[in-house]
């Protein structure tokens, strides 16, 4: 196959992109919009959570601990426990939300958390109705 002169010149057409508006976001000022349905942090509706530990059982990363609840919000919560997630282990597969019988555990689209100590990434899901 012979290489032609026009094949050397045609790529220069890319130069016209200089006049286009940049595609990147100007980060701190402009932030990307949260997408509905994104698998971010957990939320747990404590008024419906029954503390059954199905989420703990299905989690293959053993990221979920069941810990004692301070204030009982749901009389049907027989164990008095609620899930807490170790975000050093979680892989956001959302199997825990799939198996939740009352559908109280959910993922929200919020997803940014920075910390300088990895041992602090034990996350108690926010109590939000879904």
């Amino acid at each position: 196959m012979k290489i032609q002169l026009k094949n050397s010149i045609a790529p220069l057409g890319a130069l016209k992109k200089i006049f286009e508006h940049p595609k990147t976001l100007c980060y701190p000022e402009v932030k990307a919009q949260n997408v509905t349905g994104y698998r971010g942090f957990h939320i747990n509706d404590l008024s419906t959570c029954i503390g059954c530990a199905n989420c703990q059982d299905v989690c293959m990363n053993e990221a979920i601990d069941m810990i004692a609840i301070d204030v009982d919000k749901n009389p049907k919560n027989n164990s008095g426990c609620i899930p807490r997630i170790d975000y050093g282990r979680c892989c956001w597969c959302s199997l825990c939300t799939d198996v939740c019988p009352p559908d109280s555990l959910k993922l929200e689209s919020e997803c940014i958390w920075a910390d300088d100590d990895s041992n602090r990434f034990l996350y108690l899901p926010k109590d939000k109705p879904c």
Partner: peptide
């Protein structure tokens, strides 16, 4: 990881 000793057995708790 430290700090996960407060994990409780749900069946026991019930």
């Amino acid at each position: 990881r430290d700090g996960r000793d407060d994990n409780l057995d749900v069946k026991e708790q019930i």
